[in-house]
Design a protein around this nucleic acid. Structure first.
Lengths: 251, 251
DNA sequence: AACAGCGTTGCATAATACGCAATAAAGGAG
DNA sequence: CTCCTTTATTGCGTATTATGCAACGCTGTT
């Protein structure tokens, strides 16, 4: 660990808590000499990570941070982070893998790694998935905050896509409970005859679920007898992505 | 200047530009030994400012940055004070509204309320705007104290972003005079073809202009025939924010 | 199987960050 | 107005510490 860098970073964290703090105060916080703190602040000031109040001469966080964290947000997007894992998931399951996102109260497919099988499921990037009968829709819905979930539930139109589509709100509410308990959501020919999908939630650094991943394949290949091995691989992949998004289970 | 801290910070800035970068690459960027970069990354990893991709072993920015920059945003008075008005401005004009700040002789975008139109202007938070041909740059420049203004003017590089960009110092000086007279600054496709922006100054309690707000939209929607209504709404919003910042016109 | 590239680690040295003490400047108390 | 305290800032010598070198283990490729 590099001491001076670490001390500089600690100053940033301290400044994040206090809207303004002086050299002497910070020196006491870090238990180091004033001059050390001064020089640390000085180099961070050069890069606009901290700025000095013109009146009080104390220091506060600077604009440069916005520049950096904007770069983070741009690159922390779920797509970039999940891409390798998604590919790996397709490799190990041989079925198409998808990443979905919840935006404007709807669930969309935002990325896909297609299966190499001649017969495969291929979703359209940008396609909206029904909330009530797709694995990804139900998965996201299950993990929304209760209030939001109820609001969405009230607006659901229970279109029956197949004979297996469940069209009662009560049944869906019950199933969401199961999903939270099991950690995955299932769509066994509810949306499309002959297609079976499984989805698992992605947690972001705040512990929110705004994304999920899923695998989809012909029910001739994915069926109730062998589904556990798919679920396992899916969950591992989802956990991996959550971790890379900054989610830490123990707080 | 403290070398190791500075190098660590430089890594953060580099990572803000590249979505992921390896130890060796960064060592070449900084022209230092790999081991040095590794140890710098290691100490930043401890604080979640960078994270390592589990698949490629390369590094990218980490969520710790969000924690710090949330602290910044929380404490940046201008952002908090102007947020509601900015939102209102977007509602009434239907175009994206921005807040900018003048720090270290440069103009940065620090907040944004995006338009709901499918076609809209979206600036990057933390992005630096050119002084000589952006509405916000010219606006801030126009209201700087004369001495400061001249100093900045001497350092301007008159890059021509479009065919409409004005590249003479004399023309700019003249325009700044107009801006002060009119109370707003205009960028009609000078920075980006097809984009029209208008900016107005924010006064703080000392009567200084360190911020400005602006609206930006496609020149198909904002053009010279209807611009007066935009200017009106913009000025009202700017005055409102100035007032909330403690500015009292009678001194 | 050999190689090339990567991230990682141990080690010795010299660069460099550190604490001390002095300075300057600003604010408050009498 | 003056003294006194407290602040940020700077020079300097020393010893800590960050650094480059070189070797290691690993992965993937040829």
């Amino acid at each position: 660990m590099i001491q001076s860098l670490d001390r500089g970073l600690e100053i940033l964290f301290i400044l994040a808590e206090h809207k303004s703090r002086g050299v002497t105060e910070l020196a006491e916080d870090l238990k180091v000499n004033k001059s050390t703190v001064f020089r640390l602040l000085d180099t961070m000031k050069e890069r606009d990570l901290v700025q000095q109040d013109e009146v009080t001469a104390k220091y506060r966080l600077g604009i440069g941070l916005l520049h950096i964290s904007e770069g983070l947000v741009k690159n922390l997007d779920a797509i970039n982070i999940s891409k390798p894992t998604l590919k790996q998931l397709m490799d190990s399951t041989k079925e198409s893998a998808h990443l979905c996102t919840f935006t404007n109260d709807k669930v969309y497919v935002v990325d896909q790694v297609k299966s190499n099988y001649p017969m495969k499921v291929s979703a359209a990037i940008g396609h909206e998935e029904p909330i009530h009968c797709s694995s990804v829709g139900k998965c996201i819905l299950a993990y929304l905050p209760e209030e939001k979930r109820n609001k969405i539930l009230d607006g659901v139109r229970f279109v029956a896509y197949t004979e297996k589509t469940k069209t009662s709100k009560e049944a869906l509410v019950e199933e969401l409970k199961q999903i939270r308990k099991n950690g995955y959501a299932l769509d066994d020919e509810e949306l499309s005859v002959g297609v079976c999908c499984i989805a698992a939630p992605i947690y972001n650094h705040k512990g929110e679920v705004k994304n999920c991943i899923g695998i989809s394949g012909p029910s001739a290949r994915i069926h109730m007898e062998n589904i556990d091995s798919y679920i396992n691989k899916l969950k591992i992949a989802a956990n991996n992505i959550s971790h890379n998004m900054g989610y830490r289970y123990t707080k």
